[in-house]
Structures are given as C-alpha cells and as structure tokens.
C-alpha cells in the first residue's frame, strides 16, 4: 500500500488534504510523547510539545519535500521544539529527579527484569545526570530504535559523530549507574 506510507501521507497534507495529518498523529503521537517524556520526564510538558510538533508540521508543510524520510523530518522538528522550550524555560524543563521519584514511589516498575526497584531509580538518576546531548542520542537510539544514519540526519551531524556520542553516552551512563548502585 504505497499510498499509506508516511511520506505519501505528508505529501497529501502538503497538497491541502489536511485530514491526513490525523493518520500521522495516530501513528506517531506515542513515540513522540515517549521521546519528550524521556527528555523532560514531565507529562504535561511532553503532551504540549507533541501538539507543537504537529502544529509546526502543518504550518511548515510546504517545507516537506518528500526526499527524506518523514520520521527524520518530524524528529528534527521535535528536537528544535524541545531546544526552544528548554531555552525559554531553562530551569523547569530539565529532567526533574524529585518529581520522577514521586511518580515512581507507588509504581510497580521494578517487576520485570529488575530485582530491586532501586535499580530503576538509579537508572533514572543516571539518565537525569547525563548531558542533554548524551541523553538525546541514547533516547533516539534505544527508545526510538533509530540507526546511526537516521540519528545523524535528525541531529544534522555526521554518522561518525553519532557513533562516538552514543559510545560515550553509554559509558557515562554505565559509570553513573554502577557508582550510584554501589552507594
């Protein structure tokens, strides 16, 4: 079904069939929300940011050429929107560890794969301790399951840089996680 690819849908939106954006929303609102949630750890903020991404895609629909992948374009916009919002609201938009801990307090997140709930807490803390650049590549790589070449396009850097950054981010996370765990 060639007519239902992301790109063809977005091209139809561009041509004026704005209702097709609804289909793209249904496909991507959760992954996008997850991206923003991993980056900000705030549900309200993440929901607003998702809305912003779709608004911006409508507003700048003429800029979509269909040469690149829709998903790449969308995350590129998403990342810019996130950066803008962080700049606007520097203190509050950072990964908020105390808020996160509250949310985890009564949860059952530790059930599968983790022996202790503390592990999850430590992992969250470790993620929160990473720089935005490192956290970003890990989120895109691990949670959005993007390949390095796609991440490179989203971030507008070359693939080699992405690979190095993921490697260092993972090293940093490991260091934080295991040192925290031992304390």
């Amino acid at each position: 079904m060639n007519t239902l690819t992301d790109n063809s849908l977005m091209l139809r939106v561009k041509a004026g069939d704005l209702d097709k954006m609804g289909l793209l929303f249904e496909r991507y609102n959760r992954p996008l929300f997850a991206f923003f949630y991993h980056m900000t750890h705030k549900r309200d903020v993440s929901e607003d940011l998702v809305q912003n991404v779709f608004y911006r895609m409508l507003k700048y629909k003429h800029a979509f050429t269909g040469e690149g992948e829709f998903r790449t374009w969308m995350y590129h916009l998403a990342r810019n929107i996130l950066n803008d919002s962080v700049k606007q609201n520097r203190s509050s938009d950072h990964y908020d560890v105390s808020e996160m801990a509250d949310k985890l307090g009564g949860g059952t997140l530790a059930d599968e794969g983790f022996e202790k709930r503390e592990d999850v807490d430590f992992l969250h803390k470790a993620m929160a301790g990473l720089s935005d650049d490192y956290r970003e590549v890990l989120v895109l790589s691990r949670f959005q399951e993007m390949k390095y070449d796609e991440i490179a396009k989203v971030l507008n850097i070359n693939e080699g840089t992405v690979k190095v950054r993921v490697h260092r981010a993972l090293g940093e996370l490991k260091k934080k996680f295991f040192t925290n765990e031992r304390r």
Binding site: N29, R43, S46, F143, L173
Partner: peptide, 25 residues
C-alpha cells in the same frame, strides 16, 4: 544496562492530547 533502559516505563499520554490535536487541526 541496555536491557534496563528498555524497562524504563513511559506513561500513556492523556486522551486530552488527542482531543487537543483534532481541535488544533
């Protein structure tokens, strides 16, 4: 670590997000 990351749960976005999206559209 890599497997643990996958276990980090993300809450569901609320239904309002969808409602707001269609209103915006």
């Amino acid at each position: 670590l890599w497997e643990s990351l996958a276990k980090m749960k993300v809450p569901e976005p609320r239904e309002e997000m969808r409602v707001n999206f269609y209103a915006m559209l």
